[in-house]
Nucleic acid binder design. Structure first.
Lengths: 115, 115
DNA sequence: TTTATATTTCGATAGATAACGAAATGAATT
DNA sequence: AATTCATTTCGTTATCTATCGAAATATAAA
């Protein structure tokens, strides 16, 4: 018997992962930038990113010390393409999301990382 | 600060709740009929149904001893309408789902309930 | 008004998940 | 080569969730 796959919904059922997806819609970001906005431990953010990546929502691009994460431009799963292109429908722009978006616009990697 | 609402995704991230939604797409069913197909305790099925109902995916209609559950024909949340009308897109008809569908067509309430 | 049946509620428990800090890894700079 | 910094991995812990069986509730039948 095959098992019903719920990993897309499970991935989307954590508020911090939804915040990350919305943030990455503005621009690609490294782990420490995301950590700065979410105010979570870097290890926690890294874990969220690995889940989003494994399921196919985002991709990573290494750049020296940094790992830049961005929305997957070509997901192989149509359901993931659909969610990504209709993110605003699924996640309303409430205060948290709006505030994240403002912070993302302002983040300066040289400020936030290394300090 | 408002909290990001993940209850739709959380509701959809349990395989047994997805099976119930798919079954109810074939026809409305009572708790014991669903219990018979899923092979779970009646209390567990009842709990899944209450979650699906509270979030808005299904409605209930009392009929004597029985409580019939069915897909909500007029959800107030557009996201729920969307999920319901595109269920086949989100949940592929794998063996479990197909087998459930066959069982649902055959279930006879007077057989399954009371025995 | 008992009895039977369908469902829900409750309490307990096992397993999953998110969070953290510490340690390990990898890459650039000194 | 040693150091620094970004990230990941690991081990632990607290919380959440799905499950069960037993008890409570509600309705119908005897």
């Amino acid at each position: 018997m095959t098992k019903i796959d719920t990993k897309i919904f499970k991935t989307l059922s954590d508020p911090n992962r939804l915040r990350i997806l919305k943030m990455l819609q503005s621009k690609s970001l490294c782990v420490c930038e995301i950590t700065d906005v979410l105010k979570l431990a870097a290890s926690t953010v890294s874990k969220h990113l690995s889940i989003l990546r494994e399921v196919g929502f985002i991709i990573e691009q290494k750049d020296g010390k940094w790992v830049n994460y961005m929305i997957n431009p070509r997901p192989s799963d149509a359901r993931i393409s659909s969610v990504i292109s209709t993110l605003d429908f699924w996640i309303s722009d409430d205060q948290v999301i709006l505030s994240d978006k403002q912070k993302v616009q302002k983040v300066d990697r040289s400020e936030v990382c290394s300090r």
